[in-house]
């Protein structure tokens, strides 16, 4: 039996600029006002532009299938706007290892003598904290995924072995 050697590489998830770009017309027609389809994809992900600005997608029959797939892909992103944060912790899966608490860049910045070196939080400004063996979220407004200049940070999702943290909004 051969040895099965696997490497954990960050998966090119569907909801990424590249994933969106693949489904766009890729003609760089500039109808939407952007310089290229790639920049349109970035803006779509940041929710700075809506899909209907790409008129060829709706007008030309060839793109109909791609448009449906895009709408399906972007739906959770649009729905996330309705909730305050979008951070979901599945408490039934979490076993309180605290990997996310130590890995979260905001926790590290706010609490350099606690979370950053692996200990429990000593500051009130941290986002993630373990209580009664389960991780709890607070101060979500300081998370790097929210606000005007949000980025697709996944520092708390990657280290979770139980897949207990999720951002359904993408």
């Amino acid at each position: 039996m051969p040895v099965d050697l696997c490497t954990n590489v960050a998966k090119d998830s569907d909801l990424s600029p590249m994933g969106i770009y693949r489904l766009l017309p890729q003609t760089n027609c500039k109808i939407c006002g952007e310089t290229s389809c790639m920049s349109f994809a970035f803006k779509l992900l940041k929710k700075e532009i809506t899909l209907d600005k790409c008129t060829p997608l709706y007008e030309e029959e060839d793109y109909e299938e791609d448009r449906r797939a895009l709408e399906e892909m972007l739906r959770p992103l649009m729905e996330a706007e309705m909730t305050e944060t979008g951070l979901v912790i599945h408490e039934d899966l979490c076993f309180g290892c605290g990997n996310c608490v130590v890995a979260c860049p905001v926790n590290v910045a706010e609490d350099p003598k606690g979370c950053a070196i692996g200990n429990g939080p000593t500051s009130d400004k941290v986002i993630l904290k373990v209580e009664n063996g389960k991780v709890k979220a607070a101060n979500v407004e300081s998370c790097r995924r929210f606000g005007e200049h949000r980025i697709l940070c996944n520092a708390c999702i990657t280290p979770c072995p139980a897949k207990a943290i999720e951002f359904p909004g993408g």
């Binding site: 979490c94 076993f95 309180g96 605290g98 200990n119 429990g120 904290k129 373990v130 063996g133």
Partner: peptide
């Protein structure tokens, strides 16, 4: 060594994993 623990009518444990909490 960083466990915060309050044992009263309700038991509250901070920072411990599920194993320690149980």
């Amino acid at each position: 060594d960083d466990i915060e623990c309050e044992i009263g009518e309700e038991i509250k444990v901070g920072n411990a994993c599920l194993r320690g909490f149980r």
